[in-house]
């Protein structure tokens, strides 16, 4: 198919392609440069960081910052915990969302409008930290990993978008499955889900990033430090720049800039790496035509 497009490309189209490539590569560079500075800074000495304004390669290369973060067993444990909670949590959250989105995509479902209105309301208004905390406590979820997964299980925004995608799918496929005697559960699994891979991959990513970056839930719900996730340890380092003298003990120096940068890298790179894996689902997409055939 790609070949067909090329053959019919006009000179103007070719010119557009060139400009487009140049623009997007430029945009990509702008997006990545500050990140590269943080990366370079994480390998630089404290002295270089305080004296050079902006650089992409450190004059003096050091891995001290990483050694001090990655050296501790606590960190390794937190990392494993976070990966596990993110993996399982994403699966649960995505499953719950898709299960609810599918019935809501049926226009004739009784009560659909009411439910959607209520969902929209929860998107705009959330009760706040303390009431939610009290419920989580009431349910006995304090100090369990469930507290990091369940309270945010269905994001109303994601639910609405996924519902909308389901609604857009060609009805004929479902109809023919129905005629073959498939029930709704089966249709969801063998017709709707495969066709919705790109959008499900997208929201898997959204949920995963949400859990990965969440520091409020572990802060509020986990007393036991041995259960803490990565962000609990990382945030302390990155947010400390606002400290004033009074907060600190008499002699405690603020954390070094280099460590802050290394922390940003450690927190970001694993979830950045997740993207290319999900990306293949976008590219594959689904060839509605071939399914039809």
């Amino acid at each position: 198919m790609a070949r067909v497009k090329y053959r019919f490309n006009t000179p103007a189209g070719k010119a557009f392609d060139v400009v487009n490539v140049v623009v997007l590569v430029g945009v990509g560079a702008i997006a990545i440069l500050p990140f590269l500075y943080v990366l370079a800074g994480s390998f630089a000495t404290e002295y270089e960081l305080t004296t050079r304004p902006f650089f992409l390669w450190p004059n003096e290369f050091t891995t001290d910052a990483y050694a001090s973060i990655l050296g501790s067993t606590v960190f390794v444990r937190a990392f494993i915990t976070t990966v596990a909670v993110t993996g399982v949590g994403t699966a649960i959250q995505l499953a719950l969302t898709a299960l609810m989105a599918y019935p809501l995509s049926k226009i004739d479902l009784p009560g659909r409008r009411t439910i959607m209105s209520l969902v929209v309301f929860t998107m705009v208004f959330s009760a706040g930290l303390i009431p939610t905390f009290l419920i989580v406590k009431e349910l006995g979820l304090l100090d369990t990993y469930w507290a990091l997964i369940l309270p945010a299980a269905i994001n109303p925004f994601s639910l609405i978008i996924i519902k909308n995608f389901f609604q857009e799918l060609p009805k004929e496929l479902e109809e023919s499955a129905k005629i073959d005697g498939a029930n709704e559960l089966r249709i969801l699994r063998s017709v709707v889900m495969p066709l919705s891979k790109p959008v499900l991959a997208t929201f898997a990513l959204f949920y995963a990033v949400g859990i990965w970056n969440d520091y409020m839930s572990p802060l509020i719900y986990l007393n036991d430090t041995s259960k803490w996730t990565l962000q609990m340890f990382l945030r302390q380092v990155t947010a400390a720049s606002s400290l004033t003298a009074e907060d600190l003990g008499n002699e405690l120096p603020p954390p070094a800039q280099g460590i802050k940068f290394a922390v940003v890298m450690v927190a970001t790179i694993p979830v950045l790496l997740a993207y290319p894996f999900l990306q293949k689902h976008f590219a594959k997409g689904m060839l509605i035509g071939s399914v039809k055939g």
Binding site: L99, S126, L185
Partner: peptide
């Protein structure tokens, strides 16, 4: 299919609203 979602919304989204 929708049941778990409904339970979720009742538990974690509407119940806390008494706190509003």
């Amino acid at each position: 299919l929708m049941l778990p979602g409904i339970i979720y919304f009742l538990l974690f989204r509407f119940w806390p609203m008494y706190g509003a």
